[in-house]
């Protein structure tokens, strides 16, 4: 490997890295919101909306992000809906992630034993208070490991953004391999930057998991 080549590649990778994490984290934030809403609608069996949320979750959990992006980015403009590549990345990741987060939150809510709710009610709390003070925090606690896994999964999924011509890390690597044939250096930088992006998240996830252990229901 040639250090000079690595050095000359650095600015391009750094720029691509920033773009990737920007879209990645915006998408994850969107996924959190969509997932939360969808899980509530399903958990509280709100008519009609519950159905729609259910179809949405099945549809987006069972299709690849790349195909979702192709449809949104290349297909929708043909019927008059034009979305910029970056917005498309955020939207695609948000929709994909929302379907995963929805399942995570929903099973978290389901995992709370009914007696937890009853004991809070028996202390005189209102239904709203029981949800805010007991059910929601417990459901989130239970969900921490799954949320961490989702976040890692979604950050990894950002690797397909190059397909809709976003100049992300994959795009940069492929471009440089095509241009200069310094394959080793280009791939090394690719791995390096993905490690920088994901290793801290992976470690933080494990720490979070250890912290919440012991605060789960049924212990």
């Amino acid at each position: 490997m040639d250090p000079e080549v690595l050095k000359s590649y650095l600015p391009r990778y750094a720029e691509a890295f920033l773009l990737t994490i920007k879209i990645g984290w915006l998408g994850i934030a969107l996924a959190f919101v969509i997932g939360m809403l969808s899980a509530f609608v399903i958990h509280f069996r709100i008519p009609v909306l519950k159905r729609i949320a259910g179809y949405y979750v099945e549809l987006f959990r069972n299709t690849p992000l790349l195909v979702q992006l192709f449809f949104i980015y290349f297909g929708l403009p043909k019927v008059g809906i034009v979305i910029s590549a970056e917005a498309c990345g955020v939207l695609g990741l948000g929709l994909l992630g929302g379907s995963y987060m929805s399942e995570t939150f929903r099973s978290g809510l389901e995992a709370i034993p009914a007696a937890q709710k009853e004991s809070a009610l028996s202390l005189g709390m209102s239904r709203g208070q029981v949800f805010r003070e007991i059910i929601l925090p417990e459901a989130l606690t239970i969900s921490v490991p799954a949320i961490a896994a989702n976040v890692i999964f979604l950050l990894k999924e950002t690797s397909v953004f190059s397909a809709i011509s976003l100049m992300d890390l994959m795009f940069t690597a492929k471009d440089l391999i095509g241009l200069y044939y310094d394959t080793t250096e280009a791939l090394f930088m690719l791995v390096l930057f993905y490690t920088i992006m994901l290793l801290p998240v992976s470690i933080l996830g494990s720490i979070a998991e250890k912290t919440v252990r012991g605060k789960m229901p049924g212990q």
Partner: peptide, 16 residues
């Protein structure tokens, strides 16, 4: 319910 307290077999302390 505030005037009636109840204790359950499975304790049901709030784990968090």
């Amino acid at each position: 319910r505030q005037k009636i307290g109840m204790v359950f077999q499975s304790y049901e302390l709030f784990p968090h």
